[in-house]
């Protein structure tokens, strides 16, 4: 099952490269959304592979909290750009 994780790591490198070379802050936010979701899904996969429930619970919490943090950050940046 390791090849699934290797493929996910390779897919994770795409938004990292995007966040590095793009100059628009919204492109960076998109890359961050992609990375935050991918990393928590990877933790979830690892928890299934290892049959470790606690890592799985943490992965689910990180997945939901990452989305909430992203929306909060996007809203703040949007408000600050307007004023």
């Amino acid at each position: 099952m390791n090849f699934i994780l290797i493929a996910m790591i390779l897919a994770l490198l795409i938004p990292i490269y995007e966040a590095w070379q793009d100059n628009s802050i919204w492109q960076k936010m998109l890359a961050f959304a992609s990375i935050a979701t991918k990393t928590s899904i990877m933790i979830l996969v690892i928890s299934v592979l290892r049959d470790d429930w606690w890592i799985g619970v943490v992965a689910v919490i990180i997945l939901s909290v990452g989305n909430a943090g992203l929306m909060l950050l996007a809203h703040l940046i949007k408000r600050f750009n307007e004023v």
Binding site: I16, A19, I25, K28, M29, A31, F32, I35, A36, T39, S40, G66, G69, L70, L73
Partner: peptide
């Protein structure tokens, strides 16, 4: 700041 958030996720 956005990259710091990415660093946190990684």
């Amino acid at each position: 700041l956005v990259i710091r958030a990415i660093l946190g996720a990684v």
